[in-house]
Each structure stands twice: as C-alpha cells, then as structure tokens.
Design a protein around this nucleic acid. Structure first.
Ligand SMILES: [Zn+2]
Ligand SMILES: [Zn+2]
Ligand SMILES: [Zn+2]
Ligand SMILES: [Zn+2]
Lengths: 166, 166
DNA sequence: GCGATGGCGTTACTTTATTACATTCAGGTT
DNA sequence: AACCTGAATGTAATAAAGTAACGCCATCGC
C-alpha cells in the first residue's frame, strides 16, 4: 500500500471525498476489467453507496437504498452484490459490525487491518503485514499455521480526539 | 500468560481434558469470589458446557443444552449467561463464528488472539501482546488510538497438520 | 438463431440477537 | 417473622442478519 503512513489519516481527516470516491470507483472498474468480471448496475450502485462515506454499512441498509432506487428489495439482492465486491477485493466485510465497507485501495493489500472509530464510525484500512507477521510468529510457536486473519481495532481517530471526544 | 509457548500446543494436542476443564472451572469460581459476583446454577452450567471441548459454541447450541437440563428455553437465558461469563473474563466471544468459547486462562490476558483450526474446530488462545503492539504502532502512525482489538486467525493446528490434513 | 451461462428477481426460511415485562430469590431492615 | 429491594431468571414477542431454492431474462459463444 503506497502512502501507508498517510492512508489512515487521509480517511479520518476532512478531504475531497468526491475525488476520493471517484478514484476508488475507477480503480475498481479497472481491476474488474482485468479480471474479466462484470460491473453490472446493481454491483456498481452498491459500490457507489458504500463509497458515499467511510462508514461500514449493514447489508439491509444497503438493500434499502437499492430498493429505493428500483432494484430488487429482497435480501439476496444486497448479499449477492456485496459478496461479489468482497470476492473481487472491492469491499471488505467487518466481522465486529456485521457490515461492509468499500475498499479504498483495491489491488494493494487485500486483507488489511481495520481501524474503526467509535465516535465518527469511519473505518480506515491499515497495513496488516507487520501485524500478521507478529500473529504468524506467535502461532508458529504453538505449531499453528495461520491462513487467514481477522484484525479489527476499535478506538478513536485523530480527528475525533482533536475535537475533544473522550 | 505463563507457559505461553505451550498453551497453544496444549489446546490442540491430546491431553487430560478432565483436569484441564476442572482447573479452568476452579479458577473461574475463584475469580468470581474475588470480584464478588455470583456463579449461579445457569452460569456455572453454561461454563461447564463450554468447557466440555475446546470448540466454540453458538448461543443456541448452548441454549439447547440448558433447556434439556431444565433451565429456561428462551434465547435470553443463554445470552445472559454467556454475556456474564464474557464480562467477567471467563469466556470469549469469537466474532468470526458468532460463537463463544470458555477462557482457559482466566485472569491472565483477557483479550487474547484466537487461533481457530479449520479442521478440528478447536480454538486456542495466544498471547496478544506482541500482536497488539504491532497494531497499536501502525495505528499510531495514522493518529489512531486503539482501545480494543479483535484478532482471530483461521488456519491449521499442528495436530491436524500431522494427521495429513491439507 | 440457439443453447449455455450468469445475473437478477422472487418467496420462503433459518439463524442470531434483543426488547419488554412478569416472577422469583437472596440479602438486608425493621 | 414481615418487609423491602435489587439481582437473577423466566416468558413472549420481535428484530436483525443471513441462506436456500427456484424462475426469468440478458448476454455470450457458437
Ligand atoms: Zn474519502
Ligand atoms: Zn472519528
Ligand atoms: Zn483441555
Ligand atoms: Zn486441528
């Protein structure tokens, strides 16, 4: 992940989010073309909805939006689109929240660590490599081979801290 | 956590589980006495059920067991007992699995990392300190203050690997 | 054009979790 | 002993999250 030192701050700090979302959508489309997968209307719209903010959204929250815009109104509609996005590395699932967030760095580290601000609810992706290394090392001492890791932190972002949130 | 190098292997390898479970239950009772909390029949039985194996159990699986033994048969019965155990550090909740596992080291590291074997389904607790340190450091670079971390690894334990599971 | 495939929509259902409220029980007070 | 009180337990009802099964239609390779 390039700019990994700044990616976290960039998520939480005020920024030109129009551009931020637009770039992520473009990257996503590019990656799908590479992979020969189709970015259909529901899928595209689902990704756009996730990209509207840096928050994670529940499947039913996404579904309500899709239904309001003329797409299907049954759970599988949302779950399928979300699963597609996750499978293709364009979105992530947050276990703690039973929710989904758009990936802002498609193509880089597909299994990042997540930083969830308990005040503003925004979610940032952090480089997981050093953390996963530590985990892998601890596990290896017990003979355990790590294949997939879920790393999610709850805490307070710099912006909220600066605003005096305890 | 003492014996942290061996705690993982001890969970997955064959061992005197009677004693293993008994010791955990005794420690749990001792801790509750310290804290002035009550280990009521449902709570005790819930912990015993979790301690029967090193697997994580869903709330409804626990509930079925409790109901069969004459306790209430509505979800809150299980959820309340489980929440009590989690709150008092006697059990852990696994986010990936929507399930609960007894804590084998009550009083030591109350927020361990979890190693979940995809073959035998056993769950081991690993020292989280080095992992959390790496996470905290990465987050700090982005101005994020970590308060709680969820660290869960899916993989293969030494015992299953030795048995030739791919 | 035509069959195969993938995507989308539906209905129906399962699993997981919470809210609200009545009842019981241990502990201390009078 | 009678009484109060708060914690613990039970219930019913409902919400929230997720999946299975099936039909229709569009797109694509032929
Ligand atoms: Zn943005
Ligand atoms: Zn924040
Ligand atoms: Zn054991
Ligand atoms: Zn195993």
């Amino acid at each position: 992940m390039p700019d990994s030192d700044h990616a976290i701050a960039a998520t939480f700090a005020p920024h030109d989010h129009q551009q931020c979302a637009h770039r992520a959508l473009d990257e996503a489309a590019a990656r799908l073309t590479e992979q020969g997968a189709r970015l259909t209307p529901v899928r595209r719209r689902t990704l756009e909805i996730l990209l509207e903010s840096h928050r994670a959204m529940g499947a039913y929250e996404v579904l309500d939006r899709l239904a309001a815009e003329g797409f299907g109104r049954q759970p599988p509609v949302a779950y399928r689109a979300l699963e597609f996005l996750v499978t293709h590395g364009l979105a992530h699932r947050l276990q703690r929240l039973n929710a989904f967030a758009a990936c802002l760095h498609p193509g880089h580290d597909h299994h990042p660590a997540f930083l969830i601000c308990r005040s503003c609810d925004k979610v940032a992706e952090a480089a997981a490599a050093p953390i996963r290394d530590a985990l892998t090392a601890v596990a290896a001492q017990g003979g355990f081979r790590v294949e997939r890791a879920t790393i999610e932190a709850l805490g307070l972002c710099a912006t909220c801290a600066a605003e005096g949130v305890a």
